[in-house]
């Protein structure tokens, strides 16, 4: 009898413990899941919902089906002009900045790898990467002063008179330059560490076969960089389509520098908020970003 009692007691206890144990994992997940639900899942769904309404941040949103989308896609309307001008500027930025932000670091990484003195190599790497950790505001202020028409270092040192805020092309040149200055470091480190992981024996074998430096680069280095190249290209394009700070701060708030993100910002938080319209623009931009990422990923995979 006594033995039996003890054993049931044991079973009860272990059951209780088991019940508790089954609950423990969720305790570990809970803190994150709360924030995840409130700030990741909900805003995504709600953002899409708002894009189908006439929400103005004040009155409660009224459902209006595809109205916002139709307005944006009706050529000639104000919204269509704003959105497509923004899209054009975003494209200009992405198409010029992204190739540079991938290929300049690639060249730098190859050059750095060719330096045999490891201390010097690390030193150069540290310097070139240091500017990547600065905020966009810091970088834009530095460049605004550097390129200042009257007192800037650039004009005075090279004895020229270039007004970088004078016309669109020059402004974009300045914006791309400051993007490069503060953006090549990360990709350079990615490429450098993947090049370093290529076995030395492969290079030696290629050299013995008579391949010169250029040949070795195209036959050996480049193929082994396929993954990091895809990665930096995709993150670059996503960053490019989301560009906000550089043109917002350097190009001035209105004018021919408005990117889609700036339009969204203006429409949602400007003087007369049209959050529904802004959301529709965000959703369209989001779709473009998604499509671009998928296409790039597929293209890279096929090759």
């Amino acid at each position: 009898m006594i033995v039996r009692e003890i054993s049931t007691n044991n079973i009860n206890q272990s059951n209780k413990k088991k019940g508790l144990k089954a609950f423990t994992p969720y305790l570990f997940l809970l803190p994150h899941l709360i924030f995840f639900a409130i700030f990741v899942v909900y805003p995504f769904l709600y953002g899409i919902y708002i894009s189908f309404t006439n929400f103005d941040l004040m009155n409660s949103p009224k459902f209006c089906f595809f109205d916002n989308y139709i307005k944006i896609l009706t050529f000639g309307s104000k919204y269509s002009k704003d959105f497509f001008a923004g899209l054009l500027h975003t494209f200009i930025y992405t198409v010029t900045a992204v190739p540079l932000i991938v290929f300049v670091p690639l060249i730098l990484a190859v050059l750095l790898y060719a330096i045999k003195n490891e201390k010097l190599r690390n030193f150069f790497q540290s310097i070139l990467y240091a500017t990547s950790i600065l905020s966009v505001s810091t970088v834009v202020l530095i460049f605004t002063w550097l390129l200042d028409r009257d007192n800037g270092l650039f004009n005075n040192l090279f004895m020229v008179d270039i007004n970088f805020k004078g016309n669109e092309i020059l402004t974009w040149v300045a914006i791309i330059s400051l993007t490069l200055w503060s953006g090549v470091g990360g990709n350079m480190i990615i490429f450098l560490s993947s090049i370093s992981s290529i076995p030395k024996s492969q290079y030696e074998a290629a050299s013995l076969d008579g391949a010169n430096a250029v040949n070795r680069f195209f036959r050996l280095t480049l193929p082994s960089l396929r993954f990091p190249l895809t990665f930096s290209l995709i993150t670059g394009v996503i960053g490019g389509f989301n560009v906000f700070g550089q043109p917002f701060l350097f190009g001035g708030k209105v004018g021919s520098y408005e990117t889609v993100m700036m339009e969204v910002y203006e429409y949602a938080f400007g003087s007369s908020p049209m959050a529904g319209m802004a959301s529709a623009m965000s959703v369209l931009l989001g779709l473009i970003i998604l499509a671009a990422s998928v296409v790039q990923f597929k293209l890279m995979k096929e090759k």
């Binding site: 700030f39 959050a275 998604l290």
Partner: peptide, 24 residues
Amino acid sequence: LLFSFLLLTMMIPSVISLIPNFLT
């Protein structure tokens, strides 16, 4: 299942969540 769902949400372009997060 839950972890795959988390990974899937990494595809969400952050711009869509901007206005709702502001409201929240």
